[in-house]
Every structure is written in structure tokens, then in C-alpha cells.
């Protein structure tokens, strides 16, 4: 045999993963154990997301891969190439054109539709792990909905920093039942977790898959007197002028000059193509 099976994994493995995905969709927010396979990439590079994508892809799909919102980073490029080679599916950088989007650390700015699936790469799926090292104990806590500990983490934040300083992987409660780690997305993205698309979360090293079906209620945990706040840099995108997108800070030179740009490169590009210009667009175009 000279060729790869479609999307690298053998059919039995994909079937096993699909069963985990279906179970995850049936119990939103619940971490389903699965037999994670060795992938031709190191743990931490998205082995969980890649396996979920592989089990989800069909030959007709169009795949987009982003890392920190960008299509052109090493991780995104290599995973995209991996599936181009092993599944021979169409790929795109345009959010709207993709049927499956694998992501690390971001939700695209553009709203997803019911025809789209968002696959997250997850390093540590257990939101309680920060304070409770025992897996036996955390499973029991989930089973019995004992989630007081989750607020201890937020309490510690406020006690130390005066506010809930958790800026990413901000814990959420799904359909008023399971507390879930949304993967290390910025908390700016948390409200977007309630969406039309299907969201699948894959943790390769930890061997867990969990999911959010479309339109699932997802509430960010908080205190009555310290409500959840969506935060972003108080700037407009230097390239496209967007004032509503999540921004990356880019250091320009050794003197500390900096600019803020959309972390979602496709969103930024589309805005610029539509004629929007940011304050530093001239300089930006020069090196873009």
C-alpha cells in the first residue's frame, strides 16, 4: 500500500472517535475519554484537534486551519498541509468558505453558520485540574456537580489582582450542568461559544473529546459583584481599523513602537479588501 487512508487515520479509529464525538454532542460539556492515537506530530501541536478533524472530514469538505487566529503560522500551515496530503480535501483561508475549521486559541470573528464545524485543539481539558490534581476526584466532582472549587480559582484571581485576571481558558458552565474549559481562547471569545455551528474539542495527550451542539447555552462563571467582562485592547486595528475585533500587539522596533492588529487574519484581510483602512495601514502594507 503506497497511499494514506483518507485523512491518515484508519477507519476503525475514525469510527471510535466519531462515537466519542457523538457522545460528547449528546452530553454537552462532558469530557468523553477516547483512545488517542500516536500522530506524526508532537503532543501540544494539536494531536487531539487533528484526530477530531480527521474523523470529521469527508472528501467534499473545505478545511481551514488557524493558530491564534492566523492562517499563516507554522502550526496552521503544517496541519493544513497534512490534510491536503492525507485527505486531499480543499483548503481555504476564508472563514465563510470553510466547512471545517480547526483552531488553536481563537474563535473566528465572523459568525459561523449551521453548516460549519469548529474543531479546537485542547491542551488540558479538565477545568478543575488547576486546584484538584486527582482525576478520580475531578470526575466525581463533575458527576455530582460539585463546582465550588471552580470559583476558588476566580476568588484567588480577585484576591491577588483585584479582578478576575483569568484572560484565557476562562471556565464556562454548559446548559447549567457541566463546567467546561473552552481551551485557551481569550475570554473575549467566550460569548461566541453560543453559536450556530458545531464545536468539537479534542485533547490528544489527555485523551478527551467534548463538544457543544449548535445554540448550546454557555455561561462564563463569575461573581455577583465581579461579573464576567469581555476584554480587548482599547485600540482599533492598525491595518483595517476594526474596533470590534480581538487584537494582537505587535512590537515594531527596538524602541518599543508597537501596533495593534486583528488576530483573525482573514477577518482583517476581508475588511481591507472592502476598503477599510487603519491608522497604520500604510506602514502595515509595506511589510504585509
Amino acid at each position: 500500500m503506497s497511499d494514506y487512508n483518507f485523512a491518515y487515520l484508519d477507519e476503525q479509529t475514525k469510527r471510535m472517535i466519531r462515537r466519542a464525538i457523538l457522545k460528547g454532542l449528546a452530553i454537552p460539556g462532558y469530557q468523553v475519554p477516547f483512545a488517542s492515537r500516536e500522530m506524526p506530530m508532537p503532543y501540544g501541536w494539536g494531536t487531539g484537534g487533528v484526530q477530531v478533524s480527521a474523523a470529521t472530514l469527508t472528501p467534499d469538505d473545505t478545511l481551514k486551519v488557524i493558530d491564534q487566529g492566523a492562517d499563516d503560522t507554522t502550526n496552521a500551515v503544517s496541519i493544513r498541509k497534512f490534510f491536503e496530503k492525507t485527505a486531499k480535501v480543499a483548503v481555504t483561508e476564508r472563514t465563510a468558505e470553510a466547512t471545517i475549521i480547526q483552531t488553536r486559541h481563537r474563535i473566528p470573528e465572523e459568525d459561523l453558520t449551521e453548516d460549519q464545524i469548529l474543531v479546537y485543539q485542547v491542551p488540558i481539558p479538565e477545568p478543575l485540574r488547576f486546584l484538584e490534581p486527582s482525576e478520580v476526584e475531578t470526575r466525581k466532582m463533575h458527576a455530582l456537580e460539585e463546582y465550588g472549587l471552580m470559583h476558588v480559582k476566580l476568588y484567588e484571581d480577585i484576591a491577588r489582582h483585584g479582578e478576575i485576571s483569568t484572560a484565557y481558558a476562562y471556565p464556562v458552565k454548559v446548559e447549567d450542568r457541566y463546567v467546561m474549559d473552552p481551551s485557551p481562547i481569550p475570554k473575549f471569545d467566550n460569548p461566541k461559544l453560543e453559536m450556530a455551528g458545531i464545536q468539537l474539542f479534542g485533547a490528544g495527550r489527555e485523551q478527551r473529546i467534548y463538544a457543544l451542539p449548535p445554540y448550546t447555552r454557555v455561561v462564563s462563571l463569575d461573581f455577583e459583584d465581579h461579573p464576567f467582562e469581555r476584554t480587548r485592547a482599547q485600540e482599533d486595528c492598525g491595518l483595517c481599523g476594526a474596533g470590534d475585533s480581538y487584537l494582537d500587539e505587535v512590537i515594531m522596533d527596538d524602541a518599543g513602537a508597537r501596533m495593534f492588529v486583528c488576530s483573525d487574519t482573514d477577518y482583517c484581510r476581508a475588511r481591507r479588501e472592502a476598503g477599510h483602512r487603519g491608522a497604520m495601514a500604510g506602514e502595515g502594507e509595506a511589510f504585509a
Binding site: E146, F223, H226
Partner: peptide, 11 residues
């Protein structure tokens, strides 16, 4: 923690 475990949500 014990307060939060029994539902206290006011920091």
C-alpha cells in the same frame, strides 16, 4: 471554598 461549595457567589 466551603462557602462557594454551598453556592455563595458574592466575592
Amino acid at each position: 471554598e466551603r462557602l462557594m461549595a454551598v453556592g455563595a457567589r458574592h466575592y
